[in-house]
């Protein structure tokens, strides 16, 4: 097997002859020959890069095997990380159920407030009932958190899924016989998915409603 040095030496001599061929093609104004020569030069230049990547992959595989990391990564990818996604999904469902339950109670309380407000003997309580109605609106509005936290959690679920796919890819690189592994790899339907380009709920720096209003006013709104 050739060493990297041998191949580099070979590439140097190849490079010289290909450069000469390119010069001859230019001198003879031969576009076709020039095209061929340039392509062969490019191929020579790219070869060390491909070899470098292959060597890196081999080193990674060897290191993973030496450290017995593959089985640990498989456990992580197919066990704990998958569990983490399930837990996060569960959080979204639980908060949704809790928010709906609160909204049900708010609806029911509003109905009761309206019933009380309609009774002539309760006329003196009008102010208090109006206050209660405002509180019910605030309670309903507070359930907005479910949408906003849900969006953030779904982004994290997407990120975790991609880490999971990347880990399995790494294990497959380290041990091509993974297919024979007793645990099945992640199904193709769960392949890497790019995260949404949308920023979603603001975690830190973003426009406030008044910033948005000012911006829209500048745009003629």
């Amino acid at each position: 097997m050739n060493s990297i040095a041998d191949i580099n030496n070979m590439s140097n001599s190849e490079m010289a002859s290909r450069l000469r061929a390119a010069l001859v093609a230019i001198e003879h104004d031969d576009a076709e020959a020039l095209d061929t020569a340039v392509n062969s030069i490019l191929a020579t230049v790219q070869r060390p890069l491909a070899m470098g990547v292959a060597r890196l992959a081999r080193d990674v595989r060897q290191t993973l095997q030496e450290l017995d990391l593959d089985s640990r990564i498989v456990d992580l990818a197919e066990g704990e990380i998958k569990d983490a996604r399930t837990h996060l999904d569960h959080v979204v469902k639980m908060t949704e159920e809790a928010a709906h339950k609160t909204l049900d109670l708010v609806d029911d309380s509003r109905r009761v407030i309206d019933l009380i407000a309609a009774r002539p003997e309760c006329a003196s309580l009008a102010e208090e009932l109006a206050g209660l109605r405002r509180n019910m609106t605030s309670l309903a509005m507070a359930q907005e958190y479910q949408d906003l936290t849900g969006q953030l959690i779904r982004r994290v679920i997407g990120l975790v899924r991609n880490v999971e796919v990347a880990l399995v890819d790494l294990v497959q690189l380290a041990r091509p016989a993974l297919k024979d592994h007793s645990r099945a790899p992640i199904p193709s339907s769960e392949a890497y998915q790019p995260l949404s380009e949308l920023k979603g709920p603001a975690a830190a720096v973003s426009a406030s409603q008044s910033d948005a209003d000012a911006l829209l006013a500048d745009l003629g709104f």
């Binding site: 509005m141 907005e144 949408d147 906003l148 409603q209 745009l219 709104f221």
Partner: peptide
């Protein structure tokens, strides 16, 4: 929407939106 980036507000304006409310919002807004 929870999308609160300047570019997005401009994009929505250019697409012909009539109003833009950033979540979380209030009943008054």
């Amino acid at each position: 929407t929870a999308e609160a980036q300047r570019d997005q507000i401009i994009e929505a304006a250019q697409a012909g939106v009539n109003g833009y409310i950033i979540k979380p919002f209030t009943a008054v807004t």
